[in-house]
Design a protein around this nucleic acid. Structure first.
Lengths: 221, 221
DNA sequence: TATTGTTTCAAACAAATGTTTTATGCGGGT
DNA sequence: ACCCGCATAAAACATTTGTTTGAAACAATA
């Protein structure tokens, strides 16, 4: 019993990494089994075929990511701007995560761009609730004149900003210097995006205090 | 001579579509040749091997996209907010394009996420100049207190918002209703993102006139 | 110890796929 | 008429790859 779970577990872990790096089709069962220190036939033994292993590994990656960075449960009187900041930070933590679990996010992005029929349910069960939560938060922060459609666009904009740093990471890394890229991390980005959003909504000015940016203002002597 | 270019051309076109849809590894030479109405050996005859065909097709897709939606050359006295709007609109046109040339954008995104060594030059020759142009425009619109690092974050944010609708298209399509998704098109998005940015910079209020959104304000009778 | 169910392993198979080869048709120049 | 360069076509080749198979190793149990 225990040995079953061990190899099955190693297989899921290794499959996640390999699928994330190579994509479903390009990943080979042989590479996965080798990475999992398992025999070639193990995949078919435990999962039937390559595709079911893929589905399982995607689900696994997602749940791991979610429990690694859970959404905080706010008290009823938590102000919406705090909730916005928490939401963005949580999202960024899940997306950028530590490089150790990097593949989990990568794997989900692949799935988002070319959804497998089996995994499309992820959107309904997981993404849509989060997206509606974000819309609700923005709605509370917005003037009454904002339409639902506008709120949706704002929500997409926030998500897009978060995702960009992960999805186009190689490009970002090449565009900014190494030292600056190292500072692209969840807390700083969440602060920027939150302030940026609040400023656009007319809630406050967009000014990042020096202690956060670690840089002097332009033109300062 | 003319026939040479014809099949070579068809090969490049077909390869672009197939590579965009399936990725380099998953795309088969047979499928490409079939789509191009060419013989199986044509790829090796004209390009040597599959990989060089891929590189050529990426370059081709990129230049096609660029000439399809060129950056306007502004007169010196064009105000920065107009330039921002133009920049965003041009970018969105290239990204969202008409569904006919959809694969060109798709292909470049694949390349951005998993850069081939041969194609990494695209960033230097093409993306970096555009990125610096965007930074310059934002710089003109920003208060002097903004640091270069903050400007870069803002620029990444704008690019991220634009890319999101394309990169996560399947998800967006599933999240919003069909009728609303049809309205996700360059002009409307450019208007939203530009106004949003200007509002965050304290340049103007973020209010989209009804004639643009086509929706009545929340709570209107 | 013998038995039974489970897991691992090495080998083999069949299909897919990138590449090469060889042959065929075609046009123009000598 | 003959030859030569070039484009196309069909077949063949060598790998790769997902999957299957049958035996061996192992653990638990009676």
């Amino acid at each position: 019993m225990s040995t079953i779970d061990q190899t099955k577990e190693r297989l899921l872990e290794a499959a996640g990494r390999v699928f994330a790096e190579r994509g479903f089709r390009s990943a080979t069962v042989r590479e996965i089994c080798h990475a999992a220190r398992a025999n070639l036939a193990a995949v078919n033994y435990y999962f039937g075929d390559k595709e079911r292993l893929y589905v399982e590994s995607v689900k696994r990656a997602h749940s791991r990511r979610q429990e690694a960075a859970p959404m905080p449960d706010w008290s009823p009187e938590t102000p919406p701007d705090v909730r916005l900041r928490d939401f963005v930070l949580t999202m960024l933590k899940r997306i950028l995560g530590d490089p150790q679990c990097d593949w989990q996010a990568q794997l989900m992005f692949r799935e988002m761009q070319q959804p497998t029929a089996a995994c499309r349910e992820l959107v309904e069960e997981y993404i849509r609730p989060h997206f509606e939560l974000l819309q609700a938060i923005i709605g509370e922060l917005s003037p009454a004149a904002m339409t639902d459609q506008q709120i949706r666009l704002v929500a997409f904009g926030i998500v897009g900003q978060c995702l960009y740093f992960r999805v186009a990471e190689p490009v970002v890394r090449q565009l900014v210097e190494q030292s600056e890229f190292a500072q692209v991390e969840p807390r700083r980005l969440a602060e920027h995006i939150t302030r940026w959003t609040l400023a656009a909504l007319g809630r406050q000015e967009y000014v990042l205090p020096e202690c956060v940016t670690g840089q002097r203002p332009k033109g300062a002597t």
